[in-house]
Design a protein around this nucleic acid. Structure first.
Lengths: 213, 213
DNA sequence: GTCTATATTTAGATAGAC
DNA sequence: GTCTATCTAAATATAGAC
């Protein structure tokens, strides 16, 4: 059985590849670090052209304007981000699966500076471009929560009162941790161990927190 | 007893008021919606001048350049944000304090569009301006976690194994919820009830989740 | 102190050579 | 199809009138 969200993400990725062509991908590859590091308004088409190794006119033959290039790039990246974390299914006992999921999330989204910049970019533009942030959510956050919810719901040992709420607590805690520690540079002023956070988080979900002495 | 973080935040706010003057505040007030809605690179000094009701030259007599104006504004806002949520101390039993804290956070940061834009702005610029995101953390996230950690640690009923980790789970879950539902417009594609999330969150912390049937 | 007018640079987008 | 050269608008910042 293949999850429906996996099909959606793969379909989105192939959709973009087919519509753009080889040089179109070369342009997207050059535009990516520019937009990721400088944001939409801070990026010039001149710099994108130089970074992609083409002229400005070539940009405008593949994309109607700066907006089109930007939206195409973000949707392309959103479709790719999905495979990073949730490609492998969750199988096994919760006391081994939950820490493994947390570690997988941390090692993927918590160690790739490019992912930090992608989050910054999507959040930065979310006010003016709701459809981009929703594409990000649909391809990354939503399947993550859905996958974990299914696992928690179907896990016979746990028998949770509200699996989806628990999944959102789990994912939310880890994402928030990465956001504070890495994206917002909180590690330098208020460091906190990811392992310690995960341990307490897993303990709470498993319902094994210490009883009152 | 007054918490040390409260003193820091108040001191920062008064610091800015004294150094800028009355017309300086008028400029900041005009610049605020521009930067909040358009971001740093997307905001022009021309628009700021018009919004503040002064000429461009007046801007440059109060602030050396666009960068100076922006940094001053963000630090000014960061100093103000603190008072919104954590001005009142936490007293009472955890089964009533924890839901109250969650509701207070949701009603403050989850219902003010200006706060969404402020988060977007800080996160957007966090790559190039670590000191701004750290000012935001020091004035908002850090005292929030510290206040809740103190409460959880000193609460005789709970006797938690790791109060700070628990506080970070609590705050992280709610902030992540607001970020996904409101800032990134997830409510339109994957809505989830805040009350339901808080209920499960409080249940987990209190250690009252349902036992296996 | 504050504004009008301007200098200079750089942006997005296009025309035309090849 | 791709590049060079260019147009027009808008950006930051400043000079000089009042």
């Amino acid at each position: 059985m293949v999850d429906s969200h996996a099909l959606t993400a793969i379909a989105a990725a192939e959709f973009d590849r087919d519509r753009i062509g080889e040089k179109g991908q070369q342009i997207l590859l050059g535009a990516m670090p520019e937009f990721l590091q400088r944001g939409y308004a801070g990026t010039s088409m001149e710099r994108v052209a130089k970074a992609a190794g083409v002229s400005k006119q070539t940009l405008y033959s593949y994309f109607v304007d700066k907006d089109d290039l930007f939206v195409t790039l973000v949707k392309y990246l959103a479709a790719q981000q999905f495979q990073l974390v949730w490609s492998e299914p969750l199988v096994g006992a919760p006391d081994v699966v939950l820490p493994a999921v947390a570690r997988r999330m941390l090692s993927k989204i918590g160690s790739e500076p490019q992912y930090f910049d992608f989050c910054r970019l999507v959040i930065a533009e979310s006010g003016k471009r709701p459809e981009l942030s929703q594409a990000f959510l649909a391809n990354v956050a939503k399947p993550a929560i859905a996958t974990l919810t299914s696992y928690l719901r179907d896990c016979p040992i746990l028998n949770l009162a509200d699996p989806e709420a628990t999944a959102r607590i789990f994912v939310g805690t880890i994402v928030h941790h990465v956001l504070m520690q890495d994206v917002l540079h909180g590690a330098a002023i208020a460091p906190f161990s990811a392992d310690r956070l995960v341990e307490q988080l897993v303990t709470l979900v498993l319902g094994q927190q210490r009883p009152s002495s």
